[in-house]
């Protein structure tokens, strides 16, 4: 049961994930599904991956952005539930004690609730039309294409 006292950990065996430029990009290599979450979502992902309890992440968000704690907690729980549903994270046994999060590291901008963007059909689109022809099969010159530059 997911609660603010939960801590989660990424399912590292299946995932490639990184936070860059304020955005978390997550690829489930087992399913080929791509995920991205920016700003507050990236912050939440980063600290979930760092082993923090959801309650501590919410408190840090509320402090940094000056939003009501209740809203921050609801947003954190909602994103965590999505991450669980997508099997990107798994409950972490033996949740750590309260963790202090350095909120000064968060770039200050207008707060937006986290969104998890999902792209489920990348693998399907790759498989749709294999590129033609391969190099060895190319028997002709282009009609007007100058590819020499």
């Amino acid at each position: 049961m997911l609660s603010l006292d939960s801590a989660l950990r990424p399912r590292a065996e299946d995932l490639v994930a990184k936070v860059l430029d304020g955005e978390a990009l997550i690829i489930n290599m087992a399913t080929g599904v791509y995920y991205s979450t920016a700003t507050s979502g990236a912050f939440i992902w980063e600290h979930i991956a760092g082993g923090c309890r959801l309650r501590d992440i919410a408190a840090a968000l509320a402090a940094r952005y000056g939003i009501p704690l209740a809203r921050a907690e609801a947003d954190v729980l909602e994103l965590a539930a999505k991450l669980l549903e997508e099997k990107l994270v798994t409950p972490c046994e033996g949740a750590p004690a309260t963790t202090a999060i350095d909120v000064s590291a968060i770039p200050l901008s207008a707060y937006e609730s986290p969104e998890l963007e999902i792209y489920r059909d990348i693998g399907h689109l790759v498989a749709l039309d294999p590129p033609m022809p391969g190099l060895k099969d190319l028997p002709w010159k282009g009609p007007s294409d100058d590819t020499s530059s």
């Binding site: 590129p131 033609m132 391969g134 190099l135 190319l138 282009g142 100058d146 590819t147 530059s149």
Partner: peptide, 18 residues
């Protein structure tokens, strides 16, 4: 790009940059 054909990063097609 696609690995199946080696092509330059920038080309031209009928006067349109590619």
């Amino acid at each position: 790009h696609d690995d199946s054909i080696l092509l330059p990063d920038q080309g031209d097609h009928a006067g349109a940059p590619v």
